[in-house]
């Protein structure tokens, strides 16, 4: 069976028949954008750029340095965004492998092709969330947003970058506010998916969400979530993490997750959900 047929099946059953997850995600984005616009209004800022809004949604929060008087600022929107995406991509693969997918696998004559199709499904599914995020941001910004990914001077009122903010932080950072969050979501979601081949989905979700939570708490390149936060990027703040290292890290995780999945699926027991 060709990979194309599997992908077609996964797009139909794993995306088109589960459009409600995009609806739930859309609600999250709409509420978040309204919240952003309300915050701008409270600072009496009328105009903003699409880049500002995306930075607010996906940019995370400043580094937390434990010291007297410093309160940990949880990057709620960043966290909810990733936890939602991870949750919505959690069960499909496991359900397929323990259900209808078994009939597809033995008919296809190969296990690896099934896995590769799931990886492609995962990338398409995750990208879909961000495409929806961008579309909603554009639609809700028609009246008072500039359609540019440049970030405005006044955004530091809305997103707290801390005292490490660079002088020239309004430079073009499209890569940091858009590509890195997408790559992070794809990487962590693929990692989670490969873990579901070994463990129950709930355990995989605990692992992936723990990476997100710990990344929010501590700024270190080892906790890869930091690379996806523009508010912790070295283009914006002085002691931030590098985009290039982020891209390399995410690419390694993506490739490793696919390879690990191939190795597991070739040998694993395909059993019913029991």
């Amino acid at each position: 069976m060709s990979l194309i047929k599997f992908i077609r099946f996964d797009i139909k059953n794993g995306i088109m028949r589960r459009l409600y997850v995009y609806l739930v995600y859309s609600l999250f984005i709409v509420v978040s954008v309204w919240f952003f616009q309300g915050k701008l209004h409270s600072y009496e800022i009328e105009k903003y750029s699409i880049g500002d809004c995306l930075l607010f949604l996906y940019g995370g929060a400043k580094e937390y340095v434990p010291k007297t008087g410093e309160v940990f600022e949880m990057p709620y929107l960043w966290l909810v965004n990733h936890l939602l995406i991870l949750y919505f991509t959690l069960n499909y693969t496991d359900n397929d492998l323990t259900g209808f997918g078994q009939q597809l696998i033995y008919r296809s004559g190969g296990r690896v092709i099934w896995w590769l199709s799931k990886c492609i499904w995962n990338i398409i599914m995750v990208s879909g969330f961000y495409i929806i995020g961008i579309i909603i941001t554009l639609l809700l910004g028609i009246n008072n947003a500039e359609f540019t990914l440049d970030i405005s001077e006044h955004i530091s009122y809305v997103v707290n970058f801390g005292d490490q903010l660079k002088q020239n932080h309004t430079q073009k950072i499209a890569l940091e506010i858009l590509l890195l969050p997408i790559l992070y979501s794809v990487a962590i979601s693929l990692l989670q998916m490969s873990l579901t081949l070994l463990f129950k989905p709930i355990f995989s979700y605990i692992v992936s969400s723990s990476i997100c939570l710990s990344s929010a708490y501590k700024l270190t390149p080892i906790l890869i979530g930091n690379f996806s936060m523009a508010a912790r990027n070295d283009k914006i703040v002085n002691n931030g993490v590098s985009s290039a290292l982020g891209i390399i890290s995410f690419s390694i995780i993506i490739i490793l997750s696919v390879i690990i999945g191939v190795l597991i699926i070739r040998k694993c027991n395909i059993l019913n959900k029991e």
Partner: peptide, 29 residues
């Protein structure tokens, strides 16, 4: 080989897609 080349299987509690008709499930397979 990963699987027998020509095999039909019905294991306990066969799984199909709930929202498809019986015919569409077979057609998909």
């Amino acid at each position: 080989i990963a699987f027998p080349e020509s095999i039909g299987i019905m294991l306990e509690n066969p799984s199909f897609i709930n929202s498809y008709s019986g015919y569409d499930n077979l057609r998909m397979l």
